[in-house]
Design a protein around this nucleic acid. Sequence first.
DNA 1: AAATTATTTTAGTCTTGCCTAAATTCTTTT
DNA 2: AAAAGAATTTAGGCAAGACTAAAATAATTT
Lengths: 219, 219
Amino acid sequence: MLSQSIEDYLKTIYEVESSEGKVSTSALSEKLGVSPASVTSMVKKLSERKLITHKRYQGVKLTPAGRKIALEIIRHHRLVELYLKEALGVPWDQVHQEAEKWEHVLSEDLEDRIDKFLGYPVTDPHGSPIPRRDGTMIVRQCSALVDVEPETLVKVVEVSDHDPELLRYLGGIGLYPETEMTVISKQPFKGPIIIELTGKEYPIGRNAAKYIMVEEAKN
Amino acid sequence: MLSQSIEDYLKTIYEVESSEGKVSTSALSEKLGVSPASVTSMVKKLSERKLITHKRYQGVKLTPAGRKIALEIIRHHRLVELYLKEALGVPWDQVHQEAEKWEHVLSEDLEDRIDKFLGYPVTDPHGSPIPRRDGTMIVRQCSALVDVEPETLVKVVEVSDHDPELLRYLGGIGLYPETEMTVISKQPFKGPIIIELTGKEYPIGRNAAKYIMVEEAKN
DNA sequence: AAATTATTTTAGTCTTGCCTAAATTCTTTT
DNA sequence: AAAAGAATTTAGGCAAGACTAAAATAATTT
Ligand SMILES: [Mn+2]
Ligand SMILES: [Mn+2]
Ligand SMILES: [Mn+2]
Ligand SMILES: [Mn+2]
């Protein structure tokens, strides 16, 4: 059995690797809320266990074994998020913090029961893909809302689950994964992006728009 | 926030206090699977935190504050056990070990949602009473099957949840809380107790019969 | 190219929760 | 009442996972 701490490190390394490519000590320190020195010593331990590789001053990389564990935890996390929403009606801005704890105590048996209950889902409440049991995960082509040109009809693919306040705002205006909307304009001087959704217009701040992933909708 | 370890100590102290009256270092050592020396040092810490009282060489007692926390954890445990059985179909011999982990990661919000989903239940799948939110719990009058005289019609109140094998056997013959059955005979030389249940007779070992609590059924 | 700044690692501590071995205290037997 | 035995506590250590302060290395600026 791996400690909760090790599981969180591997998961975070996976996430940083996906979103930023390079995984630096400082990035991990920030995301995990732990000092850089603590990261260095855990990195040492994970290397010894062959879950990551590490070149001094150059960042870390998951080995296949480490990646498999990371995806296992992410699978737990996302299944639990969806389960809490579907089965117990937990609002989508709260499921993340609950799942953060539950992901570490989910047995394989329960994982399977939840998976079955949900009908073998492929995405979580925020639109993120759920890794498969075999440790693989689909990758999708999509772009951040902030990079989309005005006058485009887009479909929401995925929304970051880390900021409850943003999620509440988006939920309030009816912006969920699978929702279609039109980018009306991008206000100058780093102003908000205006979108149209079910006939109404709403502003989305540039920063928030970095965390909303969309794809072009066919017509 | 209390550590998982502290929560488990308080819960175990409560359980030993209920079943044996006196809570000795060695009893805790045994139930928690930890050396007596480790118990002594944790006892010291819990006393300092005013969660228990301790007289050297004389055992420990929960303070009201400690009892409240113990019952909170037991509430989590029993709600989770019932939830796993009802909502996810986990067999009753497996719910205990899952709940043993989940009890420590259940938020108050989720506790309430599960409670509501289950219709505010009063007992867990093994017949144990579920403590109320306010930290109180009903106590029932019942006796161990092993102490019942032959020829008595009894109703099962509660079954110990600690031995999966026993639970599977009992489930197999249809012996659950609320089941009525007749004690036919007690075989001599510490032999088994014979019970009759839905027209058939089954043997229950003396030792197992210590862990089955019953009350006299009216007629 | 040298100096400054930022990042990462090392060194040394701390807390939690466990351990074993030895000493103490309580209980039971003779 | 003394001795033997059982239970409990003390003493001293260890591993995990965090921290701060200082040293080493890399990246950026002048
Ligand atoms: Mn986590
Ligand atoms: Mn999510
Ligand atoms: Mn139980
Ligand atoms: Mn527990």
